[in-house]
């Protein structure tokens, strides 16, 4: 790695070349993404309207709207969060606060969580299909889909919350203990608020994953494009709808663009709102 001895113009030349390559790469990346986003926006914007957002699809999705898909997506994500947030938060606190970091068991738990966080969503889909749909007899339903996604999101949520709990300086715990604060107070008044940004980040990541997920939902929550009337109904998530229009419905492209635009818009909105909230929260906490 030691710099070769060279004549003085060479390093300068190298310097310029590398800078050029860096800017070119960034230009390429930006162009690609602008291309992608503009394609979706330009092709989709003409179709999107309140009518499109609220009404049911007709003619296999070539006409009509995406109302039922939005409802189904919301319900699936709701089930997913309802199951995974309490479990994830509780588990993360146990891992970070109630176990010894060096203990063999908790190390193994952490490692398995890392593996599970990396497991392809379709494998969770397989599990959900076998367990929720068939074994528990929930069939193709929003409940099956939501709980499958909960399993998928759970490791992410646990790990990010745990990491942010661990990142809290030990001094806070020590001085809380030195004041005779109980664990309950320490956890609820001090640690959870401090870990909230990390938890929120994990949560947003999880919501993003859940809303974007397609593969695991194909065979757990199903395809039915009617408005769902209960959690036990089958329902088509927005992402599944895009896939179906693109692959199985000739002439479905314009509505696929529009659905993609809505989905991406929703995800962007969630992203921006969450970072805004995190900023506000931080500001509030520090003043």
């Amino acid at each position: 790695m030691v710099n070769k001895r060279s004549s003085p113009w060479l390093p300068l030349f190298q310097e310029r070349c590398v800078a050029l390559v860096v800017w070119l790469a960034v230009g390429l990346v930006t162009t690609l993404f602008l291309w992608l986003v503009s394609e979706i926006v330009l092709q989709g914007i003409g179709v999107v309207s309140w009518e499109f957002i609220l009404s049911a699809p007709q003619n296999a999705g070539r006409d009509g709207g995406i109302g039922p898909m939005l409802v189904a997506t919301a319900l699936i994500v709701g089930v997913c969060l309802g199951v995974s947030v309490p479990l994830g938060l509780g588990t993360a606190i146990v891992l970070a606060e109630y176990t010894n970091e060096n203990r063999r068991l908790s190390q193994w738990v952490r490692r398995s969580l890392d593996v599970l966080a990396g497991v392809p969503s379709i494998v969770f889909g397989l599990f959900g299909h076998a367990f929720f749909c068939l074994f528990l007899g929930l069939g193709f339903s929003l409940l099956s889909g939501g709980m499958t996604l909960a399993c998928m999101v759970l490791p992410l949520l646990i790990r990010s919350t745990e990491e942010s709990l661990r990142a809290i300086p030990r001094e806070y715990r020590l001085s809380a203990a030195a004041l005779g604060l109980s664990r309950w107070t320490t956890v609820t008044r001090l640690l959870i608020p401090l870990a909230l940004p990390g938890f929120a980040a994990g949560l947003i990541l999880g919501v993003g994953r859940a809303m974007a997920e397609t593969a695991a939902l194909l065979f757990t929550s199903g395809y039915v494009d009617r408005f769902p009337t209960s959690l036990l109904d089958s329902g088509r998530a927005l992402s599944v709808h895009i896939w179906d229009l693109a692959m199985n419905v000739p002439g479905g492209n314009s509505h696929a663009y529009a659905s993609a635009l809505v989905l991406v818009g929703l995800l962007f909105a969630i992203n921006l709102t969450s970072s805004f909230i995190a900023d506000q929260w931080k500001k509030h906490a520090l003043t």
Partner: peptide, 14 residues
């Protein structure tokens, strides 16, 4: 710990 207060090296208000 209520009877025994402690202050640490680095100031660490919550």
């Amino acid at each position: 710990r209520r009877r025994v207060g402690m202050v640490f090296q680095k100031p660490n208000p919550f």
